[in-house]
């Protein structure tokens, strides 16, 4: 039976020789660029030596994982990553949803599309540019935020916002809201256009106010979109977007800005502790997969939409 299936597969492949030929180079590319690095995970269980390579380096078992959890810096990295990405997730989701509701309530077509276009523009601007804009806006020398807060007498002298540890996570959160709110709203808005107009009409006849219609028709109507996005984003909780942190941190905020990727770059490429840095990457990957599987299962159990 098995042999039979094998021959059918081979003969089917034979009939699709051109297709096989068309895709083979890319399969090889995929294996080299995506799967060989995953195989490189074995480095974490060795004292990797670049000259000896993976085949020649000595095996050390879980030594680097133990060192990782004994490293106080690494605990800080976990804390920073989780804090920043949770703040970003909560702020990002609520602001995008809020903007989508406001746009959905806007009947003026032109105003609606202009607002949508302009607010989603920053999504396509690089973090390098965005970081410079953020620095200028928060600067102590003529930055908009300080000028404005001084104008309304909330502060007397400019504050070095990016130099204060307790503000750092929130600046990351709000600057990413600035960049992504419009783009994030598009997907919710698309889901809202799918809601049946009759539902709104019925609610109106029942005497529901506009805000009541938003709460009882709009929000339930996008619940599944909301949940799918939430599940996907929870899977990415351990990647907080390191470009932003790297570009906006300074010596003063180093302690609260260090996240997984930056930790791997610093320990792996600067301090040359390859195996140690690889172990931190594996930890992040494993946690991500676990998170996404668990939230997906949970969503299934609650009888809601699931990703897979």
């Amino acid at each position: 039976m098995g042999k039979n299936r094998k021959t059918t597969l081979l003969s089917e492949l034979g009939r699709n020789k051109t297709l096989l030929l068309m895709i083979s180079p890319f399969v090889i590319h995929l294996i080299i660029f995506c799967y060989v690095p995953i195989w490189g995970w074995v480095m974490a269980f060795q004292d990797y030596n670049p000259i000896a390579g993976i085949t020649g380096s000595p095996w050390v078992g879980l030594k680097h994982f133990k060192a990782l959890f004994a490293e106080p810096l690494f605990i800080k990295v976990i804390r920073n990553t989780l804090a920043i990405s949770t703040i970003k997730l909560v702020l990002g989701t609520t602001t995008s949803l809020f903007l989508a509701i406001l746009l959905n309530e806007t009947r003026h077509k032109y105003f609606k599309s202009v607002t949508q276009t302009i607010t989603s523009l920053p999504h396509f601007i690089s973090w390098v540019v965005t970081a410079n804009l953020v620095r200028e806006m928060l600067s102590t020398d003529g930055g908009m935020v300080n000028d404005f807060l001084m104008f309304i007498h909330i502060i007397d002298k400019p504050v070095l916002w990016l130099g204060v540890q307790k503000y750092f996570w929130w600046i990351m959160g709000w600057s990413s809201v600035w960049k992504e709110v419009g783009w994030g709203a598009i997907i919710y808005l698309a889901a809202m256009t799918g809601i049946d107009d009759q539902l709104y009409e019925a609610a109106k006849i029942d005497g529901a106010s506009r805000i009541q219609r938003i709460i009882h028709v709009t929000i339930p109507g996008i619940k599944s979109t909301f949940l799918i996005l939430l599940i996907m984003n929870i899977g990415y909780l351990l990647s907080a977007g390191y470009e932003q942190m790297f570009l906006l941190k300074s010596g003063l905020t180093q302690d609260v800005a260090q996240v997984f990727e930056l930790f791997a770059i610093e320990w792996g490429l600067n301090k040359l502790r390859y195996s140690f840095a690889t172990a931190s990457g594996i930890f992040a990957s494993v946690v991500s997969i676990t998170l996404i599987t668990v939230t997906n299962k949970l969503s299934h159990k609650l009888g809601e939409t699931a990703l897979f």
């Binding site: 995929l30 670049p50 792996g268 490429l269 997969i289």
Partner: peptide
């Protein structure tokens, strides 16, 4: 083959193995 590609959306080898591969 589709699954082989989709898998890479969730799992990557990380920076260090990638760096040595490029090297």
């Amino acid at each position: 083959l589709s699954l082989l590609w989709i898998f890479t959306m969730y799992v990557s080898g990380g920076l260090i193995p990638y760096y040595f591969l490029m090297r």
